[in-house]
């Protein structure tokens, strides 16, 4: 019979909600009652969240204590003597050098550890800039609607119509000397329209909501309505998106570095750049590509898992 599954789902929710409705009185007191506390209660039992959180914590700790963890200077050609490129010979793993040396004889492990910093910086800053830009545009469009909305959204549509990596490459190419900063800017600009569109959609939905109407009926001015009611209630999906964008930015930044549009500094290693260098010798030394690529994947996965579990926890449909 048609429609039964739908009803079943509804009932399952109903079951869950009516169950809580009754167990509630004591429960709410202990939780403090805010929505974040509610979300945390669901996050706490989510294995996905914990896997993501552990990956990211480990990564952040490594980045912070990179100087302590890295056994050697990542720029020094310590294993030069053991490297014979002509004979396809690299320094093998050995005491003090757990992953051996790279094509120039630098300590691969130290380079990976120090490289985590750059990756984290790119991911976080690109997301922050993209988020802020999207926040401003989305708020403008969502709060004013009408003509402002049309203008902002057409601009956003234009940006969205260009494949994001292509756009990032074009922007990065505008800079005379590619650097870490140019990578961050290129990667973040690409994310602005994504955030703007998402936020604008949420804001428009909020604009139509009863509680915003209630505030209007009370005679509350526009600014407080936007900043106290519409914006805070629109942010959950945007925050979820932000965690996912960290992962995307890391991958995009790696791609730019890989293409030679990233930092050219030999002193400061970066995973994407390492991957780019390894590509030339990938037949002979696949492990040079394996380690930075693996790191990028794991970290991106960590942020994705975190984002997904947040999405689930903040989903209003799961809230009673």
């Amino acid at each position: 019979m048609v429609g039964l599954t739908k009803k079943k789902e509804r009932i399952d929710q109903l079951a869950a909600s009516s169950a809580t409705a009754v167990v509630d009185p004591t429960d709410v007191e202990s939780s403090g009652g805010s929505i974040l506390a509610d979300a945390w209660r669901r996050l706490r039992v989510s294995p996905v969240f914990w896997i993501g959180a552990v990956i990211i914590s480990v990564f952040v700790l490594i980045a912070i204590f990179a100087d302590v963890i890295a056994p050697h200077d990542p720029g020094e050609l310590l294993l030069r003597s053991q490297t014979r490129l002509a004979r396809n010979q690299l320094a093998p793993p050995q005491p003090g050098f757990p992953l051996g040396g790279d094509q120039l004889g630098r300590d691969l492990f130290s380079r990976l550890v120090i490289g985590s910093r750059q990756t984290l910086l790119v991911g976080v800053f690109a997301t922050l800039i993209g988020f802020t830009g999207g926040l401003i545009l989305g708020t403008l469009a969502g709060a004013f609607g009408g003509k402002v909305d049309t203008v902002v959204m057409r601009l956003v549509d234009v940006l969205l119509s260009i494949p994001s990596l292509l756009l990032a490459i074009s922007i990065a190419a505008l800079f005379a000397n590619p650097s870490q900063t140019s990578v961050i800017i290129a990667v973040s600009v690409v994310q602005i329209p994504v955030f703007a569109r998402l936020l604008r959609g949420q804001m428009l939905a909020q604009r139509e909501s009863d509680h915003v109407l209630a505030a209007r009926a009370l005679g509350v001015k526009r600014a407080p309505i936007v900043f106290r009611h519409m914006l805070p209630n629109s942010l959950s999906p945007v925050i979820v998106q932000a965690t996912l964008v960290v992962a995307i930015s890391i991958i995009d930044a790696a791609a730019l570095s890989f293409l030679g549009l990233g930092s050219q500094s030999v002193k400061v290693p970066e995973w994407g750049q390492m991957l780019g260098e390894a590509q030339q010798k990938i037949d002979s030394y696949p492990h040079l590509a394996f380690w930075p690529a693996g790191c990028i994947i794991v970290v991106a996965l960590g942020f994705t898992l975190l984002g997904e579990s947040l999405r689930e926890a903040l989903d209003p449909k799961n809230r009673r």
Partner: peptide, 8 residues
């Protein structure tokens, strides 16, 4: 519920 801002 809908007419009361859930975050206030």
């Amino acid at each position: 519920l809908g007419s009361l801002d859930p975050r206030q």
